[in-house]
Design a protein around this nucleic acid. Structure first.
Lengths: 201, 201
DNA sequence: GTCTATACAACGATAGAC
DNA sequence: GTCTATCGTTGTATAGAC
């Protein structure tokens, strides 16, 4: 029911920043409704633009969430793309390498802290984050391995990566926080590999 | 809104355990609001006592936080005692078993959430929490094994236990959150065992 | 004229009502 | 089980910027 009538097709006049409007609206609506509760149509409606703009500018709902709420350094889709090209027996090391490399970037530690804080905060934000991570990151990672108990394996990988992030970026345990990327990969990679393709008991 | 009317001055009658009421209320409110978000007045209000009682019994907000949130459900010393009696090759499984059993207890999930939240919150609480964990829990665990790189090993154990806690109690990933204790021990125990006594790279 | 941001329509999937 | 409403997403025609 947009009535408002007669928004014409084609490029809008002047410097109307549709992208920024979507980001602002998304922060509001995701904050109010959570990830699954917020609809692309509601966000676009609040921004006063067409829902298709979400796809055009952010590649979809998850991309919009990632940029508006998580402010992720690298698109989740890009990471998954890279992982799909890796042989299964090297997935553990690759996942750890990607994780550490991405969050070691400037500002990464602060962003990770904010992420954890929001995940342990109001139930709604926690749900948002959990839904997002499961649907867009750890779910797909679980599907990279063709074994049994994929969901549990994905959960276990998530648990180790989250714990690594908290220890290295939030609590800053030493010497772990000061270990270089290769050292962390050597220490934690085999854990992730076993969670993906090994025996779980 | 103090109305409630006519609470009389002076010592309350009978065996009302003000201290215990404050502890219970503090666990709830810290869990919901985090360290800085929780107010002494809110905690005292929920406990049905005067805010001044927080100072009287705990020396202030931080003291109450330390006792209500940081104090593990089971004494740290008791846990360490049990661990010292376990053969090294079974330490991994035993640590995971203890961790899950302790935090699966009623109220454990809320307490763990509050703990994580405080660790990612104000620098002061984060620092005291990190110091507390290293000095009283993961430090001693590292000393249970007589290998090289004890500090790094202790950090890695901490990272997996923290991640397990976040996944199971805060984010509540399924199926991990619903897996029984033995299942979690079978899945995560070998990881901790390798961190303690295995090759790290 | 070309490029691209935009609007509209429609599709397949999914969830809830009855 | 069927029907309906609504979701996220895609295809395509068009209008404004360059």
């Amino acid at each position: 029911m947009t009535t408002g009538g007669a928004r014409r097709r084609g490029r809008r006049a002047g410097g109307v920043d549709t992208r920024a409007a979507l980001l602002a609206a998304a922060q509001e609506v995701f904050g109010e409704q959570g990830y699954s509760g917020a609809t692309v149509r509601a966000i676009a409606g609040r921004a006063g633009v067409d829902p298709a703009m979400v796809n055009h500018w952010f590649g979809g709902k998850s991309g919009l969430f990632a940029e508006a709420v998580l402010d992720l350094p690298m698109g989740v889709e890009a990471v998954l793309e890279r992982l799909r090209a890796v042989p299964v027996e090297r997935l553990g090391a690759t996942i750890v390498w990607n994780f550490v490399t991405v969050w070691d970037a400037p500002g990464g530690a602060d962003r990770f802290s904010a992420l954890i804080r929001s995940a342990s905060g109001p139930a709604q934000a926690a749900e948002s984050l959990r839904d997002f991570l499961l649907a867009n990151l750890f779910g797909p990672i679980g599907e990279l391995v063709a074994g049994d108990r994929r969901e549990l394996r994905a959960n276990l990988v998530a648990s180790q990566m989250i714990g690594l992030g908290v220890a290295r970026y939030v609590a800053r345990f030493e010497p772990l926080a000061g270990t270089d990327v290769d050292g962390v990969v050597a220490a934690v990679g085999p854990t992730v590999q076993r969670y993906l393709t090994g025996e779980l008991g």
